[in-house]
Design a protein around this nucleic acid. Sequence first.
DNA 1: GTCTATAATTCGATAGAC
DNA 2: GTCTATCGAATTATAGAC
Lengths: 194, 194
Amino acid sequence: MTQGAMAQGAMTQGAQTKAAILRAARERFAAQGYERTTIRAVAADAEIDPSMVMRYFGNKEKLFEAALAVDLRLPDFSAVPARELPAALVDHFVERWEGDPADDALLVLLRSAVTNERAAERMREVFASQVAPALAAAIGPQRAARVAGLVAAQLLGLGLTRYLLRLPSVTALDRQDLVSALAPALAATLTASG
Amino acid sequence: MTQGAMAQGAMTQGAQTKAAILRAARERFAAQGYERTTIRAVAADAEIDPSMVMRYFGNKEKLFEAALAVDLRLPDFSAVPARELPAALVDHFVERWEGDPADDALLVLLRSAVTNERAAERMREVFASQVAPALAAAIGPQRAARVAGLVAAQLLGLGLTRYLLRLPSVTALDRQDLVSALAPALAATLTASG
DNA sequence: GTCTATAATTCGATAGAC
DNA sequence: GTCTATCGAATTATAGAC
């Protein structure tokens, strides 16, 4: 009766607890990185006992793995005119970063990937399976293959300097300025001759 | 007699030990970040006793501070023609990163700054005191102030994706391709209208 | 499912012999 | 200056009561 009679779509208590842990873990990992976040702190944030974290995720590393799941939710850029693509790209990532603070999986991944090889591998997977295909749909597979790395460098460079390093000259720009300032650089990259 | 009679320019034994510790510390901090590098490991790399690290640097944090000292050694860009500036900038940083593996202070700083607020502060200082002035000398203080952040984003984005995340599409480029591929993007940023 | 208690490590830092 | 020995603290992980 505890679970079988539950309405479709509703979370069991266990699933709710698990989701709460994951949310807390992402915030901690994003703010402090892997080494400095403790299971105790995550549990405290989620308002449960530390042993529950072990129960649901096995160990710290598996919890970390679960926190690294990222879906960039890139739209279909094939419908976007070529000259609007750079701005659309920047805008999507900024929205992703500044939209929902609780939904910061990409920042978790970025911060973690710098000091953790497993996270770096995940980041490479994310770009290979999500960014590269989206780019290929927009500008063709050949050109995409040539510029995907530099596009990644520019978008992640923005995330790095604005949200992690917080360089004043980058944080000083508002969202609109950011898009209009970075779009030309991306455009130059996208149209680079090979 | 141990030090007073020593030849000018020669390191005392203490200074040599200190330098060896610092070199080992930089490699460890660069490879693993602050939290995961242990004084024991640094001492083992430097082939000395762990207590020596404490003796010379006081504690782990002070050792870290010492390892964060970075001199970008940026040349005087005021002599470089405007259209060659982007390539010169990229080239200098790539040289800095790939030149001497032991001289990787900037990578130490970059990796550390992502998860350590003190290191992030240092990174902001480095850009304010070294990059911004060099840029101002080349393109004028007003324009430099406007684009310095985006220049930093692109250069650090390159370092991030190539040396820390090692995205295949970025590591695949050789040095020359890298410079010629990124220069147009930097040029677009530098000439951005305000 | 949830909690208490604790085992087992690891590490930074200190004290002190030589 | 260099080393041995060890303390004290923090943390992951486990065992088991309820």
